[in-house]
Design a protein around this nucleic acid. Structure first.
Lengths: 256, 256
DNA sequence: TCTCCATTTTTTGTATACAAAATGAAGAAC
DNA sequence: GTTCTTCATTTTGTATACAAAAAATGGAGA
């Protein structure tokens, strides 16, 4: 059952740089289009625009300062990533997450993210193994400090190192897309102190397995964390069925 | 180790239609942008534009009849899907596949596509099980008739049914993207009669397992097929290292 | 007060125009 | 003959304009 093989190492710079170029390589922010895109993405991920909400071009244009040409390119890009959807002559709306979508996403993640964990254990550099430890400690510190923003940053860091260490930019790309779609829910989840504590325990197991380069344990810990996060998310949704977040997730438009 | 659970069935029309809307739902081809996008995509997949080749806007504009606004939206969309890459002030080029990328893609597919096969065995409707059989017979007929185009169409059909039957549009989305990227290589592969024969045998095993709804066998057959296809592809590349296809795959630009 | 229809306004779809950057070519200096 | 510089052309980046479709508004009739 070995799906893990040694990948060829030739032309590594070409393979990976070409693959995730144009993604969120936060560094240079070359074109206006990319900046606009990032702005909109951040606005959605931070919850400024809720699921199902309409994105009005004039409004975005004013806020970002970009012209409509640029704006529409950015929107088209985000549509391809699944973050927003377009209907003919009705413009773009923020993609809605049905409960079903959440299950689907976690089903995919359960397959791919566990693979990523295994691959990290196998392929990560010593530096990356060290970085995983550092990132985990940052998460821990954030939780103790009760600092939501810090937690989120540290988690992004953690998964960033994880995906880099697995040496497969296709996995990174596939996961980035689905994680984007649910990431504005993550902060909702993390606001529950008990869930935070559970999450910390699960992630410690994962971090330790990764640092030990223990493939089997890493997969198991990753899967456990995912299932736990999924269940917590679905639970919270069914409990808080009246909050605006829940409405943004579960409801279908009435007059479509 | 059960990553397979029963997905909730609520709001199925919303969940799925919203999820893969705006993809290649070949039916209505509403907007000009989508048509343009499809045109470019087809041009790349059919090999009309080779990997690394530059896409000149004026040229595409003339060929598709679309204005630059529309064209650029389409290009932006395709960039997000990874089919083309953009460099500042140097326009778009068709994404190149390094050997490494191919390994990465197959590594991802080995994880996700086998899951899709399992899920199909579990969840597909009786109609879909039947359709899988029909699609397979079409592939068989195509191979016997030695009709490359027919083979390709039938295979698309087969995987279309497979992805639909697994009831997870996220999986479909993730796989569509990576399969797009290597699909212009598939015809190269299929031109080798021996590989065609091998492929047929592997796919028969897969089709039979799917029709028997045998999860374990389905996964095994899917994995076997993938590894076989990957190896054949890599083999062919190293053999025919001087063909234009190989050049499009392996070489890095000299003056970048 | 409610409902239906016509008109106005907003918003999207498409096309064109102008500016900036990069590429390529011709000519001058060596 | 070669190389460097300068200029013209091409191509991309950005902004604006116009047309078509949908949504919002408001008034007339019941």
């Amino acid at each position: 059952m070995s799906t893990i093989v040694d990948l060829p190492t030739e032309t590594p710079e070409q393979g990976s740089s070409a693959s995730h170029q144009g993604e969120n390589t936060s560094a240079p922010e070359t074109s206006l289009r990319e900046a606009t895109q990032t702005w909109i993405r951040e606005a959605i991920l931070s919850g400024r625009y809720q699921g199902g909400e309409k994105l009005i071009e004039r409004e975005l244009s004013e806020m970002t300062g970009a012209s409509r040409s640029v704006l529409r390119e950015a929107l088209s890009h985000l549509e391809a990533r699944g973050l927003i959807v377009r209907q003919s002559f009705r413009g773009y709306t923020v993609a809605k997450l049905s409960t079903r979508s959440i299950f689907e996403i976690f089903e995919l993640r359960a397959s791919v993210e566990t693979l990523a964990a295994e691959l990290f254990a196998e392929r990560a550099s010593d530096q990356e193994v060290e970085d995983i430890g550092i990132a985990f400690e940052a998460i821990e510190a954030g939780i103790h400090a009760n600092d939501l923003k810090k937690i989120r940053t540290a988690k992004d860091q953690f998964f960033g190192v994880l995906f880099a260490g697995c040496r497969n930019s296709e996995i990174r790309r596939a996961l980035e897309n689905v994680i984007d779609r649910i990431s504005y829910l993550r902060s909702q989840l993390m606001s529950d102190p008990r869930r935070r504590q559970d999450s910390l325990v699960e992630m410690r197991l994962l971090a330790e397995a990764l640092q030990d380069r223990n493939r089997v344990e890493a997969r198991a810990a990753s899967l456990a964390h995912l299932e736990s996060a999924r269940d917590a998310l679905v639970n919270q949704l069914s409990v808080a069925a009246n909050t605006k977040v829940a409405k943004a997730i579960t409801k279908v438009p009435r007059k479509s």
